[in-house]
Write a protein that binds this DNA or RNA. Structure first.
Length: 423
DNA sequence: TCTGGGGTCCTAGGACCC
DNA sequence: TCTGGGGTCCTAGGACCC
């Protein structure tokens, strides 16, 4: 029995989250910026109409913002993460066959609802989420994930669809593919778009009917799967439970470049702290630690970037041990005289914490370390993150490497002191 | 002056082994 | 002029996703 997928995708998610708690933003151009208020990463439809592109640097649209009264927000990940959970929980009430694909979208397997009117079901999902969580979503329904993506895209734009498009057994399937530019197909990025257009393949319909050999040759197995999916042959199934992570990266750009090793060490210690917490939350330990540094990638002169890989003697998720090795690695790649704009740490070779390969010459008290980390995590969960932290992250106020959020909204849903007040 | 962050998968090529 | 073959593992880089 062929499956049916629905893709539920939140519209302009971060902006929509801000609007839930600030209804005055309805109908106005609104954008949410990335860390350090760098780029526009979420835009309301009104902001899109003004020509504000995804990822555009804020300084390039300063005049546009001023002239049109665009409402600007720093990103508030605590809020978006919590709102995302509410959306997903609501979705889970519609079917247990759900795959959370990203912070703002989920695939549902609706195969067991085939005898119902799926379009109606889509509308019920949409209106329930709007009512319960306050977030507008679009729903695309089709025989494969790739087709559901296309359906969703059209559902979002078409006035007639009212946010829901069901392409199963639809006479409009060809039409839908024809009006979808090839670059908007899931899995087709800039490089493949260039190649396909050179071959005269401009829309999803032409891609679906393209020569298998041509696609296989240039786009490999992924391309082959892609065109099968467009033909209604499912190559990707629903991933019920999230697979364990293969790696964890924590990195940040600085608002202003940093020169001294000491400051970089503080930043690295802070990122290791975040990463190690993530590791422990996943019940994983890391066997390979990488540290990297880079100067401003948009400047031509005095460029430097380097990455150091350290194989750890014993896989670990202990913050202090990881800080120790990260600092060792950092010292080796630090060069005096450069203006550093970004540093980061990566944890790879993750394995479950109950499968640690011990080392004969290990001097670390693993038992004690585990208990200490547990206590540390419990306190920080209960009393707020970084209630307890390592001195290596520095004690001064206003550290220059700290990420800036000049126009952040309140943490309405995750902090008792920042609840919405109704006057 | 000011340009995000965190992932996955696939492939080609080199090292190494038998 | 002649210079194995095949398998595995690892890494770097490319391409894509949100």
């Amino acid at each position: 029995m062929p499956p049916v997928f629905a893709l539920v995708d939140c519209n302009n998610f971060y902006v929509s989250c801000e609007r839930v708690f600030n209804p005055k933003l309805a109908g106005k151009p609104v954008i949410v910026l990335s860390n350090n208020d760098g780029c526009a990463i979420s835009r309301s439809n009104e902001a899109k109409s003004l020509g504000i592109k995804m990822g555009v640097p804020a300084f390039q649209i300063r005049d546009l913002i001023k002239a049109n009264g665009v409402q600007v927000y720093s990103s508030n990940y605590a809020l978006y993460g919590d709102m995302s959970q509410r959306v997903m929980q609501t979705l889970a009430g519609f079917t247990p066959d759900i795959e959370i694909y990203s912070i703002d979208e989920a695939f549902l397997d609706l195969s067991r609802f085939k005898r119902y009117n799926l379009t109606d079901y889509g509308h019920r999902i949409k209106s329930t989420i709007k009512k319960w969580v306050g977030i507008p979503v679009s729903v695309g329904i089709a025989e494969t994930k790739t087709l559901a993506k296309i359906a969703n895209r059209i559902a979002k734009k078409s006035i007639k669809a009212e946010g829901v498009l069901n392409l199963t057994a639809s006479p409009y399937q060809n039409k839908a593919l024809e009006i979808t530019d090839v670059r908007d197909v899931w899995g087709v990025g800039p490089a493949y778009t260039r190649f396909l257009k050179e071959k005269g393949i401009r829309n999803a319909l032409q891609l679906r009917d393209a020569d298998d050999k041509l696609i296989k040759q240039r786009m490999g197995i992924v391309g082959t799967r892609l065109i099968h999916e467009l033909r209604g042959v499912p190559c990707y199934c629903l991933e019920h439970c999230p697979l364990p992570k293969k790696g964890i990266t924590v990195s940040r750009s600085f608002k202003h470049a940093i020169e001294t090793l000491n400051e970089l060490e503080e930043a690295v210690a802070a990122y290791v702290t975040i990463g190690a917490e993530k590791l422990r939350k996943e019940h994983s330990v890391s066997g390979v630690l990488m540290v990297f540094v880079m100067t401003n990638r948009f400047k031509r002169e005095n460029l430097y970037s380097n990455l150091n890989t350290l194989r750890l003697p014993v896989s670990t998720s202990d913050t202090s041990e990881l800080i120790y090795y990260a600092h060792l690695g950092l010292k080796e790649i630090y060069r005096k005289g450069y203006l550093y704009k970004k540093v980061g740490v990566m944890f790879n070779d993750l394995v479950p914490e109950n499968q640690i390969q011990s080392n004969l010459f290990d001097v670390w008290d693993r038992n004690r370390s585990m208990k200490l980390m547990k206590a540390l995590d419990n306190i920080n969960i209960k009393m707020g993150s970084s209630t307890l932290k390592y001195a290596a992250v520095g004690l001064r106020q206003n550290q220059r490497w700290k990420t800036m959020f000049d126009s952040r909204s309140q943490s309405y849903t995750t902090n008792w002191n920042q609840l919405l007040e109704v006057q």
